[in-house]
Design a protein around this nucleic acid. Sequence first.
DNA 1: GCAAACTTAATAGTATTACTATCAATTTTG
DNA 2: CAAAATTGATAGTAATACTATTAAGTTTGC
Lengths: 224, 224
Amino acid sequence: MKNLLSTIKISVPEKIFLKDPESSDLGKRIIGNSILLIDEIGFDNFTFKKLGAKIGSNESSIYRYFESKHKLLLYLTSWYWAWIEYQLVFSTSNLPNPTEKLLKAIEVVTRTIKEDNDFLHINEVKLNQIIINEYSKSYLTKEVDSENKEGYFVVYKRLITRLRDMILAINVDYKYASSISSTIVEGALHQHFLKEHFTSITDCNETVTPTKFFQELTINAIKS
Amino acid sequence: MKNLLSTIKISVPEKIFLKDPESSDLGKRIIGNSILLIDEIGFDNFTFKKLGAKIGSNESSIYRYFESKHKLLLYLTSWYWAWIEYQLVFSTSNLPNPTEKLLKAIEVVTRTIKEDNDFLHINEVKLNQIIINEYSKSYLTKEVDSENKEGYFVVYKRLITRLRDMILAINVDYKYASSISSTIVEGALHQHFLKEHFTSITDCNETVTPTKFFQELTINAIKS
DNA sequence: GCAAACTTAATAGTATTACTATCAATTTTG
DNA sequence: CAAAATTGATAGTAATACTATTAAGTTTGC
């Protein structure tokens, strides 16, 4: 994965940022260090002032890239889902068997991220933690409908749609292909959260993975 | 449901509040109007100052009931899940068939709340909307582990556990009874959110319910 | 019936947040 | 090399999320 990915650029909807953080050194430091800082203190406690201090830059400079910390979160989440989408497309493209394809796709969207080496300035392991802990906050807002119209959630929706199409390729008559796809992606994040904080209401742990759970669940759902 | 429920008191963990809001007229107005206000402007924009203005009382008086707006959200969510738990126990208690019991339980935890009349000062329809839009924010915090230890999430966890036991009563060998239970409850909230805001990634709408989706999903999962 | 205890309201104050605006210094580029 | 763009520094604002104090009103217990 390493070499291939490092040559492509993950594409995030342009309206999310004021100035593309990939276009400068400061921009990359903003992205790279915001991941470290949000992972460390949580999105609620995260401020541009603290980030400025961490990267030896000024609050006002960061505001030239993102108009708010909410937009920065939208950037990070879009980047993450675009990265997952790339892996999904890449790792399923040469599988001829539709069921194998689906199982692989479920693995890609539900697995724990264990290594970070694809992109120099981005720690994918910590970004994955941020997605688990903060993703819901990006859409659970009063502005969700207008932001959805602006296209801030296209990447996420496209990922769910790809998964749905793989399910329909196995069984066109399954009535809940969209709902099960959104349940797999959101549900996997939730199971990862539960195994870290509410162990009594999940079966997932170091040995039992959300991947296995959702693979079985999906196969049983669509094959009957 | 009406008469029976209005005579009982929904019990919320005591540590959540400084002074029991059920114990005074002001307390009830705080609860009742916070539901209306949070539903109207969203939890992020909600402040005790605005609530004070709405109920013709003072910010500082509200702080004597709850030490923060976060604690108030924990109160509302605990109250909601305790209310759902009551309905679950009550409406399944006299069903002899374990599968019928489970299907009824899934219905109770996934259905849309349509009427509010059980409790005088609480609008259950709007409270349900708050749970859909804000529940995740109550636990997606850096304080989740210490607050979990304090018992702030016991009601929710007990509800999931009850559902799990009904699944195990049908099939003791099903390996993911806890995970599917937590997926049903969290997933249903998510599907309700999607049908309001991201219609392209759900099959649920006015005619297709999350209830039917999760009932089928669960039956297929545990019976194979 | 009245004092003590408690509850509520009003006011003021604090540190922090989430920005915006301005201007100067530095770097890039055409 | 001059113009344009980028960054840094400083200052300022309205709002947030509280805490503290005091006074007025209400409830209660003997």
